[in-house]
Design a binder for these strands. Structure first.
Lengths: 145, 145
DNA sequence: TACTATTCCTAGTAAAGCGGTAGGAATTTA
DNA sequence: TAAATTCCTACCGCTTTACTAGGAATAGTA
């Protein structure tokens, strides 16, 4: 089951919300959670890695919240997923050849390496600005707010 | 951690071994396990799904073993991984839109769908015959037989 | 028939990861 | 001081992963 976890999925939605609020001051996690119908408590866990990677910036205390550190057009999905999910390679041997002594001649490892390149390329091909633009140009029936 | 499991990884190696033995009669799981340095007991678990998918065929009893049901050039990595790992989409909502009521307008879902297409395309681009050819044309130092 | 080699079926299991929930401390504004 | 908010740490039930194990069924061979 080569699946992305909720970290990556919810985290991307969180970032899209921040992108839609870009230039308008800090946004509350509570509001993001409401708009995306997610738990504030869970979203809290996604913030620390995003901050460490300097993708978001926080303001503490009353009237605090979160902001993107740079324009949505400068943040790709690869940046987000890479931070929240870890390595994009489907097998550890791609980034750490030493975990397997077959690495030097393994033909399947070459495939996993190629797979990483295509996944990275696909994700790097979309910025938050692209997603916001797409979001605003499509009708979204039944969405809360 | 968008990782392929050992099912997919070991299963691919198992299939490469069967491909190298194609046209030479049934191959013992014991021999495959030895050549790939894997446990027979674990490989046994990979066989049933491969049989159900009609990728391999078994011969029971003494002098039994396993064979591919078709030429290595007719089996792609997509076939193998799809069977052993399940759906290739990174999110369930891609193949089952009903699991989420945002599916009709979700901009991130479109990304996961695109990701599935690129992953599928990459894996479908390699047949067992390609891997065998590559294996035979590269030196493999330190490998056990 | 008996023996042996092999696949096949069903269980079990320890460890890790996933998807959260919870309590409360620290910080800032008013 | 009070309220709003982020931040830190811990916990917890569930599922998946990566195996191991026992033994039944099947088929060739003597």
């Amino acid at each position: 089951m080569i699946r992305i976890s909720t970290k990556g999925k919810y985290g991307t939605r969180l970032m899209v919300q921040l992108a839609m609020n870009y230039g308008k001051g800090p946004m509350l996690l509570k509001d993001i959670a409401n708009k995306e119908n997610l738990s504030v408590r869970y979203l809290e866990h996604l913030i620390p890695p995003l901050k460490s990677a300097h993708l978001v910036h926080s303001i503490r205390g009353a009237h605090g919240g979160y902001k993107l550190t740079k324009p949505p057009s400068d943040i790709t999905l690869k940046d987000i997923i890479r931070i929240l999910e870890g390595p994009l390679s489907p097998s550890e041997c791609v980034e750490s050849p030493d975990v397997c002594d077959r690495s030097s001649f393994c033909v399947t490892r070459d495939i996993w390496a190629e797979l990483e390149r295509t996944i990275s390329k696909t994700l790097a091909g979309h910025t938050l600005a692209d997603l916001v633009k797409k979001y605003l140009s499509t009708p979204h029936y039944g969405e809360n707010q």
